[in-house]
Simulated assay, not measured.
Amino acid sequence: MKQKVEDLDWKNLGFVYRDLPYRYEAKYKDGEWQEGKLIEDSTLVLSEGAEILHYGQEIFEGLKAYRREDGKINLFRPDENAHRFALSAERLAMPPFPEDRFVEAVKQVVLANKEYVPPYDSGATLYLRPFMIGTSNVLGVQAANEYTFRIFAVPVGAYIKGLNPADYIVSEYDRAAYAGTGQAKTSGNYASSLLPSVEAHKNGFADCLYLDPREHKYVDEFGGANFYGITQEGQFVTPKSKSILISITKRSLLELAKKQGLNPVERQITLEEAFNMKEAGAMGTAAVISPVGSITYEGKKHVIYSETETGPVTTKLYNELVDIQYGKQEGPEGWVQTID
Rank of each mutant, 00 (worst) to 15 (best):
K72E: 08
S88L: 15
E51G: 09
E99D: 11
F85M: 14
E69V: 01
I52V: 15
I73R: 05
P95V: 03
Q57G: 02
N81T: 12
V103P: 07
D79F: 14
P98E: 09
E69A: 14
A86E: 11
S88Y: 13
Y55V: 12
R84G: 14
D79Y: 14
A86W: 04
Y66T: 02
R91V: 14
A50C: 12
E69T: 04
A50R: 04
E61I: 13
V103R: 05
A82T: 10
I73E: 06
R101T: 08
E90V: 13
I52G: 03
F76R: 04
E61A: 13
L53K: 10
A93T: 13
E90I: 12
A89V: 14
V103G: 01
P96M: 05
Y66E: 04
R68G: 01
F102L: 03
V106G: 02
E90Q: 15
S88G: 15
I59R: 00
A105S: 10
I59N: 07
R84V: 15
Q57V: 11
Y55S: 06
F102Y: 14
D70M: 00
M94Q: 12
E80V: 12
R68C: 06
G49V: 01
A93G: 03
I73A: 08
L63Y: 10
L75C: 01
F102R: 08
A86C: 03
A105H: 07
L63D: 11
R77W: 01
I59F: 10
Y66L: 04
G62K: 06
R77S: 02
E80G: 13
P98M: 04
Y66P: 07
R68L: 09
R101K: 15
F97Y: 15
R91G: 12
G62D: 10
A86P: 02
G56A: 07
Y66Q: 06
D100S: 12
A65L: 04
N74L: 05
A105Q: 08
G62A: 12
A82V: 00
R101G: 06
L63S: 11
R91M: 11
P96S: 00
E99W: 02
N74V: 03
I73D: 00
E51V: 06
G62N: 00
K72P: 07
G62P: 15
F97M: 01
D100T: 13
G71W: 09
L87V: 15
F97Q: 11
P98K: 08
A65Q: 02
H83Y: 13
M94N: 10
H83W: 02
F60Y: 14
R84C: 14
E69D: 12
G62L: 11
E90W: 10
A65D: 01
A86L: 01
L75S: 05
Y55W: 02
E69S: 13
D79C: 05
K64A: 05
A50W: 08
A50T: 10
I59M: 08
P96W: 07
E80Q: 15
R68M: 05
P78V: 06
A89D: 09
V106P: 06
V106S: 08
H83R: 15
A82I: 05
P78L: 04
A65K: 08
P78K: 06
M94A: 14
L92M: 15
P96V: 05
R91D: 13
L53T: 10
R77Q: 13
G49H: 12
R68N: 11
L53M: 10
E90H: 09
I59P: 02
F85K: 09
